[in-house]
């Protein structure tokens, strides 16, 4: 979620709540004979409030699951998740009196810190990356459709390949225009060395790049390298084929866009793979901690 001026109210409310908590904590901390403790009345109160805020933040995932339930707009829940989830951290610190305690509470505090850190990391990513995708991925498609579009690009490239590496079947394919048939036959008759070179470039570089999901190591991942390669292909081939190379170059560009989109999309959402389980662990361990602490 983009953190912009529309968050002002939430930020102010959170700040006020923090200051109020601080105002309660400071005298409590100074006046306690043995220092602040999670087991004191105020400490327990901080713990309950902090855990309550964490529960609220956790409920966002449930809210997302039941999209149509009229229990508040999803964006309100998201804002609450961000700001109240953030507020839970100092509250829990106040609860713990800034000490780690036993092993369970130490683990809990570390996990909570990680949850908060991963959350902030995710918020930063979600603030900047959507804009980056919009700017850098001109031909964005639906994420789930990327593999399908990739396959279509390969098919289209294979059809174009027929123009410089013709088979009889390819030449007779209805999809092939007359101009391209003529271009292909011209090339076939004129220069077999060029033809084999182009075919080699296609089968060794272009097709593997297009058909691979990530294509690490391919020089076509670089826009500059790609430009050079196609420039070279145009140089060695008759002008009639240049349009085909332009099309192939565009296909590679589209593939780069799709790869970039995939990459950004992963960044945008994969941090949740850490954040969500950690948060779940915090909630479970927090509950155990509460039960253990209150009972014993």
């Amino acid at each position: 979620m983009r953190i912009d001026h529309t968050h002002k109210r939430w930020a102010i409310v959170t700040a006020i709540l923090f200051l109020v908590s601080l105002a309660v904590y400071v005298p409590y901390s100074l006046e306690s004979a043995h220092g602040p403790s999670g087991g004191s009345a105020i400490g327990i109160a901080f713990g309950v409030v902090g855990y309550g805020l964490m529960i609220f933040a956790t409920l966002l995932s449930l809210r997302k699951r039941f999209t149509t339930w009229r229990i508040g707009r999803a964006q309100t829940w998201m804002r609450g998740h961000l700001w109240l989830g953030l507020l839970s951290y100092p509250i829990i610190l106040f609860h713990a009196g800034f000490s780690l305690g036993g092993s369970l509470t130490t683990i809990l505090m570390i996990l909570l810190s990680l949850v908060i850190a991963s959350g902030i990391f995710g918020a930063v990513l979600q603030h900047y990356l959507p804009n980056l995708i919009t700017e850098r991925v001109a031909m964005e498609t639906i994420y789930d459709q990327i593999d399908r579009v990739r396959a279509q690009l390969v098919e289209e490239a294979d059809r174009l390949r027929l123009a410089f590496s013709p088979t009889l079947e390819g030449l007779l394919a209805p999809a092939m225009s007359n101009e391209r048939r003529i271009a292909a036959l011209t090339l076939k008759l004129v220069n077999s060395q060029t033809r084999s070179h182009l075919t080699e470039v296609y089968s060794d570089q272009i097709r593997p790049y297009l058909s691979a999901r990530s294509a690490r190591g391919s020089n076509l991942r670089s826009e500059r390298e790609s430009k050079l390669l196609f420039e070279q292909m145009r140089t060695v081939s008759p002008e009639m084929l240049h349009e085909i190379f332009n099309d192939l170059e565009n296909i590679c560009q589209e593939k780069r866009d799709l790869d970039r989109q995939s990459k950004y999309h992963r960044w945008l959402h994969s941090w949740l793979l850490g954040h969500v389980p950690l948060a779940a662990a915090v909630m479970v361990l927090g509950l155990i901690h509460a039960v253990v602490a209150l009972r014993y």
Partner: peptide, 18 residues
């Protein structure tokens, strides 16, 4: 708004659920 949209498809899910 593509500057805010994280492509999470919650809108599509909400529509489908409705």
């Amino acid at each position: 708004d593509l500057e805010k949209c994280t492509r999470c498809d919650q809108c599509v899910k909400g529509c489908a659920d409705s």
